[in-house]
Design a protein around this nucleic acid. Structure first.
Length: 260
DNA sequence: ATGACTGGAGTTTCCAGA
């Protein structure tokens, strides 16, 4: 068995006790982190290694930042889009081979506001992901996992009020269409493979307005995998527990379990 | 009641997040 998780921790230093508690609680084989908001120097390698995990990290000062934390040592680590000149991607994408799976931890840009330059960069980032996947992998053969905060809710059932949120950031038609390019290449949304019609299954809730208590959230965090990996998917669940802890991240972990 | 949250940078207020 191989359990693979993703969690936007919203600052790895502020959330270090939560991360340690959750690693002990669920003992995932591998967890992809986003929004570490730390430089490599600030990243708490020692505390994570003390729990029996390896860690690889790529981040920036006070913003962005991605990591892969794993019981097995990550091999052949790459940061950003290899061969593409995109400095921001160096804080948003890290990949490594673990248990024969090419694991990616990705933090897709938030996009600022719909129609802004930053929104266009968000779309472009997703297009680059597609180009990167095409250039490096065969979706019919390779074990590839794209894990992270996609900052997009793919379908109407992935938001608490699709009419209210239509055209809004993270649920805009252009973002959802861009995500379909990843699915069309050959990635499967593991959560929907196991829970195709479930409503109210969210991974992010606004800190404001009592959103978590009222379950007004969105499913923005995903584990998408190629077919040979999807065929080995045993289970996938959203772990709401850490979102209820004191001073939580606004995101909660997603865990997929594979027969590997 | 017209607000209501959080983290980080770097000053005590701003920006970004989604």
């Amino acid at each position: 068995m191989f359990s693979l998780a993703t969690w936007n921790v919203n600052s790895v230093r502020t959330r270090l006790e939560h991360l340690k508690r959750w690693l002990k609680l669920r003992a995932p084989d591998t967890v992809c982190l986003q929004e570490t908001k730390a430089t490599d120097e600030e990243f708490p390698y020692g505390e994570i290694e003390a729990l029996g995990y390896h860690a690889v990290h790529a981040g920036g000062k006070g913003r962005n930042g991605v990591a892969i934390v794993s019981k097995e040592e990550p091999q052949n680590v790459t940061i950003g889009f290899p061969g593409m000149d995109d400095p921001e991607a160096h804080e948003r994408l890290i990949a490594a081979t673990i248990r024969g799976v090419r694991v990616h931890s990705v933090y897709i840009p938030n996009g600022g506001s719909v129609g802004s330059d930053y929104f266009l960069y968000k779309l472009e980032f997703i297009y680059r992901l597609r180009e990167y996947l095409e250039a490096h992998f065969d979706p019919a053969r390779d074990l590839v996992a794209l894990c992270g905060d996609f900052n997009v809710a793919p379908e109407e059932i992935d938001v608490y009020d699709p009419e209210l949120l239509a055209g809004q950031l993270c649920f805009h038609e252009r973002e959802r269409t861009a995500l379909k390019l990843l699915a069309d290449w050959g990635l499967f949304d593991t959560y929907r493979l196991k829970h195709p019609d479930e409503r109210g299954a969210f991974t992010w809730w606004d800190y404001q307005f009592g959103a978590f208590k009222a379950n007004r959230g969105m499913r923005l965090d995903h584990i998408w995998v190629t077919k040979p990996l999807a065929e080995r998917l045993e289970d996938v669940f959203i772990d709401r527990e850490p979102r209820g802890w004191k001073r939580p991240s606004d995101h909660t972990p997603v865990v997929a379990v594979f027969d590997l």
